[in-house]
Simulated scan of single mutants.
Amino acid sequence: MEAFADYLTKIDEPQQRKRVEEIFEWILGKFPNLQPELKWNQPMFTEHGTYIIGFSTAKHHLSVSPEEFGMEHFADDIAQAGYSATKGLFRIRWNEPVNYELLEKMIEFNIIDKADCTTFWRK
Results as ranks from 00 to 15, higher is better:
residue 16 Q to M: 12
residue 16 Q to L: 08
residue 17 R to A: 14
residue 17 R to C: 15
residue 17 R to Y: 07
residue 18 K to R: 15
residue 19 R to T: 15
residue 20 V to A: 13
residue 20 V to N: 04
residue 22 E to L: 12
residue 23 I to R: 04
residue 23 I to Q: 06
residue 23 I to G: 06
residue 24 F to V: 10
residue 24 F to L: 10
residue 25 E to G: 14
residue 27 I to G: 09
residue 29 G to I: 05
residue 32 P to L: 05
residue 33 N to H: 09
residue 34 L to Q: 07
residue 34 L to V: 07
residue 35 Q to G: 01
residue 36 P to A: 10
residue 36 P to C: 04
residue 36 P to H: 04
residue 37 E to M: 08
residue 38 L to Y: 05
residue 38 L to A: 02
residue 38 L to R: 04
residue 38 L to M: 13
residue 40 W to L: 04
residue 40 W to T: 01
residue 41 N to I: 00
residue 42 Q to F: 01
residue 42 Q to P: 00
residue 42 Q to G: 00
residue 43 P to C: 03
residue 44 M to L: 12
residue 44 M to W: 00
residue 44 M to N: 03
residue 44 M to S: 07
residue 46 T to H: 00
residue 47 E to A: 06
residue 48 H to P: 00
residue 49 G to C: 01
residue 50 T to V: 00
residue 50 T to E: 00
residue 52 I to E: 00
residue 52 I to W: 02
residue 52 I to G: 03
residue 53 I to N: 00
residue 54 G to E: 04
residue 54 G to F: 02
residue 55 F to A: 06
residue 57 T to E: 06
residue 58 A to G: 07
residue 60 H to A: 09
residue 60 H to F: 00
residue 61 H to E: 00
residue 63 S to R: 05
residue 63 S to W: 03
residue 63 S to I: 08
residue 64 V to L: 07
residue 65 S to W: 02
residue 65 S to T: 15
residue 65 S to A: 13
residue 67 E to G: 02
residue 68 E to V: 11
residue 68 E to D: 06
residue 68 E to A: 12
residue 69 F to H: 10
residue 69 F to S: 14
residue 69 F to D: 09
residue 69 F to P: 03
residue 71 M to R: 08
residue 71 M to D: 04
residue 71 M to G: 09
residue 72 E to K: 15
residue 72 E to C: 00
residue 73 H to K: 15
residue 73 H to C: 07
residue 73 H to W: 04
residue 74 F to P: 09
residue 76 D to R: 11
residue 78 I to M: 07
residue 80 Q to D: 13
residue 80 Q to H: 12
residue 81 A to N: 08
residue 81 A to R: 06
residue 81 A to Q: 03
residue 81 A to V: 14
residue 81 A to C: 10
residue 82 G to K: 07
residue 82 G to R: 05
residue 82 G to V: 09
residue 84 S to K: 15
residue 84 S to T: 13
residue 85 A to N: 08
residue 87 K to L: 12
residue 87 K to Y: 11
residue 88 G to K: 11
residue 88 G to M: 10
residue 89 L to F: 13
residue 89 L to P: 01
residue 91 R to D: 06
residue 96 E to R: 13
residue 96 E to M: 15
residue 97 P to G: 03
residue 98 V to D: 03
residue 98 V to I: 15
residue 100 Y to C: 08
residue 101 E to D: 14
residue 101 E to N: 11
residue 102 L to K: 09
residue 103 L to M: 14
residue 104 E to H: 11
residue 104 E to S: 14
residue 105 K to E: 15
residue 106 M to K: 04
residue 106 M to G: 09
residue 107 I to P: 07
residue 108 E to A: 12
residue 108 E to S: 11
residue 108 E to H: 10
residue 109 F to Y: 14
residue 112 I to E: 10
residue 112 I to H: 10
